[in-house]
Design a protein around this nucleic acid. Structure first.
Lengths: 147, 147
DNA sequence: TTCGTTGCAAAAGGTTTGCATACCA
DNA sequence: TGGTATGCAAACCTTTTGCAACGAA
């Protein structure tokens, strides 16, 4: 997860069929999704959008703070609509992709303490937690986009 | 930073001119370095090693737990020899690359608590802190590999 | 002699960019 | 109408892989 202190919002947002489709697709998925997966979902659902457009839309949404982004083990970027109350950290299941927003006050406090102790400023932090959820361990997996 | 519970060490390590050169180059650099930079450093220093070999050597070192790895903002992997006392987290300056090993007990405890609370197992965590060091802020920058 | 290692070239894979066209406001 | 947004193809970049030649043990 990546925290940027400022969430820009300069250029105006022009509403288009493609952008709306991307937003809808994002909303349909409770967990982190790759650009590729979103693109495929759109293609399946009817009104398509080019892969380039998906990338550009996600890029814009990221800049505006509307989506959270993580990287999976291969380095691929995964996106998820940010909950209305702003930024959070997540615990993601490596098997099925289930993602849980986390209380992360402890981490936030830690980074502040580190900043104070080291003299560094403008700290940004990336905190990603992955594991195996109970269902996956017990064999009771969900449909499993297994990543 | 990426924590893997087990640090493998199966196949034997055959000492070669190229591997030694990579290790020496890694040792020369106190901060995180990309495969590309290492390769360039080797080329400049005389006994070269192919870029492929650099990658494969780093891969092996990573598996054995001899190097720590972070990803920069572009997703590129950066390597650094691991201090003798095992794994740590780092605070890295976005401007000059200066990296400080951190006391991260607070984070380790937090991940344990999260595991206990959520029922997730085999937790792995990535924690990366970046910021601007004092020198860079004051304009007293070091030579600056500015990434 | 053996089998791990090297290195070149090519592949892979995700993400970005150039540019002409389409379209929202 | 003016300025964005779109989309295709191609470019980019880092990292990986195929494979024949090499070299440490």
């Amino acid at each position: 997860m990546h925290d940027s202190p400022t969430a820009e919002s300069r250029p105006s947002w022009r509403s288009t069929r493609q952008r709306n489709a991307v937003l809808r697709a994002l909303g349909d998925r409770p967990d982190f999704t790759s650009a590729r997966e979103l693109h495929a979902a759109l293609a399946a659902a009817g009104p398509t959008a080019g892969l380039t457009t998906v990338y550009r839309t996600l890029q814009t949404l990221e800049q505006r703070g509307f989506v959270d982004v993580v990287r999976d083990r291969s380095g691929e970027r995964l996106y998820r609509l940010r909950p209305t109350d702003g930024h959070r950290h997540y615990l993601v299941c490596r098997q099925c992709g289930l993602s849980l927003p986390l209380e992360s006050d402890a981490v936030e406090r830690w980074t502040e303490a580190v900043a104070a102790a080291t003299g560094f400023a403008e700290l940004e932090h990336t905190v990603e937690l992955t594991g195996l959820c109970e269902d996956c361990r017990s064999g009771t997996e969900r449909p499993a986009p297994n990543r």
